[in-house]
């Protein structure tokens, strides 16, 4: 029964959400008993930039470089997901299966090589 095991995951999810909420609730209670100051002001609630007013608005744009890395990550993630079923049945199979997988991986390794060749892997800060 597969689903039965995942009921346990659900229980764990619920407990995992409850777990950090406990200290947060404690923190909330401290604010309720007037023990700690709760007088936020403009300076307190401004963002931290080493003690002076923020020089610029928050940068909200990435370099396209990051996108390439993320794409490479997605591609290799998908590849690995394809390879795991093979890995599980590999011990029962003959050598011939290795060649099929080798083609699969070599095609992708060529992608990596291509990226390397075109300096897509050069990380520029």
């Amino acid at each position: 029964m597969i689903v039965e095991q995942y009921v346990r995951v659900l229980i764990l999810v619920i407990l995992a959400i409850a777990f950090p909420l406990l200290p947060l609730a404690g923190s909330y209670l401290f604010s309720k008993i007037n023990y700690r100051p709760a007088n936020s002001n403009e300076i307190k609630s401004s963002i931290y930039e080493c003690g002076v007013e923020a020089a610029d608005i928050t940068w909200r744009q990435f370099n396209a470089k990051y996108f390439l890395y993320a794409l490479g990550f997605v591609i290799f993630d998908v590849e690995v997901i394809f390879l795991f079923p093979w890995a599980v049945i590999h011990t029962e199979q003959a050598f011939s299966i290795l060649i099929k997988v080798a083609i699969f991986v070599i095609v992708l390794a060529f992608g990596l090589f291509y990226a390397w060749r075109w300096r897509a892997l050069e990380w520029q800060q």
């Binding site: 200290p23 923190s27 401290f30 604010s31 100051p37 936020s40 403009e42 307190k44 609630s45 963002i47």
Partner: peptide, 16 residues
């Protein structure tokens, strides 16, 4: 430490 952290004021930035 946990009790100290709980006591501290929770600050949320204005522009967050």
């Amino acid at each position: 430490d946990a009790i100290k952290l709980m006591q501290k004021e929770v600050l949320v930035p204005d522009i967050a």
